[in-house]
């Protein structure tokens, strides 16, 4: 049963509802990982699932990420739709080989005879004052690997819809959950059609320049647009939602409409998703651009300790500075 009217909820609530609704709708959907049973996950995303669906369908595993994902691959090969939780971004790395060499390649290796409908949920990115290994933005590793879908919601409604879509997907989906947005609350109508994976959305209309963001960077981009509006500049905000597949059409249409763009991302800028966005948009929209596309990203450093993270993360000021540099003298 889903709700019939929009209600205020957190992203954590929405993700929990998506798991619950998917498990009610399809008995082959199972959820497992570390601390996802009695505890309900360290962020409580799986709260109550073992109570409702039993130990067979939501269960704790031994503490071994390669084991978790490897077993999920086998279960997906045999008629199940597993969802696994990696406890934190950096704790997903032991599962890297299973993900890159097997999850991503099974369809290709078998000419489509074996497919893997599985979801790898990863609480990711920083901004929560977490200690080392708890705040990585690891999306580029996954996005660089053909065969994986990679999505990152920025609000409760999308979190619900994208997770339902990810569970329905015939291919493996790396589902990145911005930790700092887990407990942000907004209205969500869960009865709306689920947005297909691979569609970006314009979050805020604007005419002067386009901010392109995803996941944890979206709220800060919206805040920057609000600040710019007070200074008389109209910024459009595009939320990618899905990194792979990439919605060239929506993003390029948005950039063409303003002729200026800034990409905002929390991850280090070098060899990153933000770099890919700039490359794609430049290739397609060069003649519509009034200025080179700018980026506001994390620095090319290991994620800093809590006391320094505010200097690392994209800020409203840094976004507005980048917007200022978009060659307005030629407008």
């Amino acid at each position: 049963m889903t709700s019939v009217v929009p209600e205020k909820m957190t992203m954590a609530n929405a993700l929990n509802r998506a798991l619950r609704d998917a498990m009610r709708a399809d008995e082959s959907v199972v959820m497992f990982g570390e601390d996802v049973g009695a505890l309900g996950g360290v962020f409580r995303i799986t709260d109550g699932l073992t109570a409702e669906f039993g130990e067979q369908r939501c269960f704790d595993t031994p503490l071994a990420e390669a084991g978790i994902l490897g077993m999920a691959i086998g279960m997906a090969m045999n008629g199940m739709r597993p969802i696994v939780e990696m406890q934190f971004d950096a704790f997903a790395y032991p599962a890297f080989e299973q993900l890159i060499s097997h999850a991503a390649k099974m369809r290709n290796r078998t000419r489509g005879r074996v497919t893997l409908p599985l979801v790898i949920r990863i609480p990711y990115a920083g901004g929560i004052g977490g200690v080392e290994h708890h705040c990585d933005s690891s999306e580029a590793y996954y996005a660089h690997t053909p065969g994986l879908h990679v999505v990152a919601p920025s609000d409760p409604a999308d979190a619900y819809g994208l997770l339902r879509a990810a569970i329905e997907s015939p291919d493996p989906v790396v589902f990145l959950e911005p930790k700092k947005l887990y407990f942000s609350r907004s209205e969500a109508d869960l009865t709306l059609p689920v947005p297909p994976i691979g569609t970006a959305v314009v979050r805020r209309p604007g005419t002067d320049a386009t901010l392109i963001a995803y996941g944890p960077a979206v709220p800060i981009a919206l805040e920057a647009a609000e600040a710019a509006a007070q200074e008389g500049r109209s910024l459009q905000v595009v939320d990618l939602r899905s990194i792979v597949p990439f919605d060239d059409e929506t993003v390029c249409a948005a950039v063409r409409s303003t002729g200026r763009a800034v990409v905002v991302a929390e991850a280090a800028g070098f060899a990153s998703v933000s770099a890919e966005v700039v490359a794609r948009v430049t290739e397609r929209c060069f003649h519509s651009l009034h200025a080179p596309i700018r980026r506001v990203t994390g620095f090319d450093i290991p994620y800093p300790p809590p006391k320094l993270e505010h200097l690392h993360l994209p800020s409203v000021d840094r976004i507005l500075d980048a917007v200022d540099e978009l060659q307005w003298e030629y407008a």
């Binding site: 570390e34 601390d35 049973g37 360290v42 704790d60 031994p62 503490l63």
Partner: peptide
Amino acid sequence: YAISVPLARQT
């Protein structure tokens, strides 16, 4: 214990 997971679930 590994956070919430008891030894019986490790081995």
